[in-house]
């Protein structure tokens, strides 16, 4: 007696539904920001940042984070269309003038912005610290950036010591940057 196999159509529907649910789960999982840095910092562990090289804003040539090794770095992600970035820029420039004397620097990363707007912003606030440009935001995913501005404080070895999701203030910079200035590489 020939055994009749089950109809393939219900099977196809089930496979299709499973594929759709899988796709949805993947979409949800991949849109979650990476909070690995915060978790490590909460355990008291400093974190190496992702290695990247970006073009300099308004200049030819590229720079990488490794170029700043040996300096304390305040790495600030910003965009000209971001209002809180406007609010914190004068503070960052004041700190740059203060840090430059202690082998430390602010490094700005302009992200997802029109380059002429970014340059106008730099001129408007008279920002003197090095500026890089991440036109498509490819470096921000590994840092878990989901909004602007966001700031990372790196020690002289180039490891992340602190993060601020949102605009920095005087107190944050004093608390996180000043102790690093006396550290050696």
């Amino acid at each position: 007696m020939v055994r009749r196999p089950p109809s393939p159509l219900p099977l196809a529907v089930v496979v299709g539904v499973i594929a759709l649910v899988g796709l949805l789960a993947y979409g949800l999982a991949s849109s979650e920001p990476d909070r690995g840095i915060e978790r490590a910092l909460a355990r008291g562990e400093r974190q190496p940042p992702p290695a990247f090289t970006l073009p300099r804003l308004g200049e030819s040539g590229k720079s990488s984070l490794a170029d700043f090794r040996g300096q304390v770095v305040v790495l600030n992600y910003w965009a000209s269309w971001c209002e809180p970035c406007r609010a914190e820029s004068p503070l960052l420039e004041r700190w740059q003038r203060r840090l430059a004397r202690r082998n430390a620097t602010v490094v700005g990363v302009n992200v997802l912005d029109v380059s002429s707007d970014a340059l106008s912003f730099v001129r408007e606030y008279d920002l003197t610290y090095p500026m890089l440009r991440d036109r498509d935001g490819r470096t921000q995913r590994a840092l878990g950036i989901v909004a602007y501005p966001e700031t990372f404080v790196l020690d002289r070895r180039g490891w992340i010591v602190a993060t601020r999701r949102g605009p920095v203030d005087e107190r944050f910079l004093e608390r996180t940057v000043l102790p690093l200035l006396d550290e050696r590489e």
Binding site: R4, P5, P6, S7, P8, L11
Partner: peptide
């Protein structure tokens, strides 16, 4: 292919 096999078996 699965439908053809199913119909043949039927």
């Amino acid at each position: 292919v699965a439908t053809l096999r199913w119909r043949r078996a039927a």
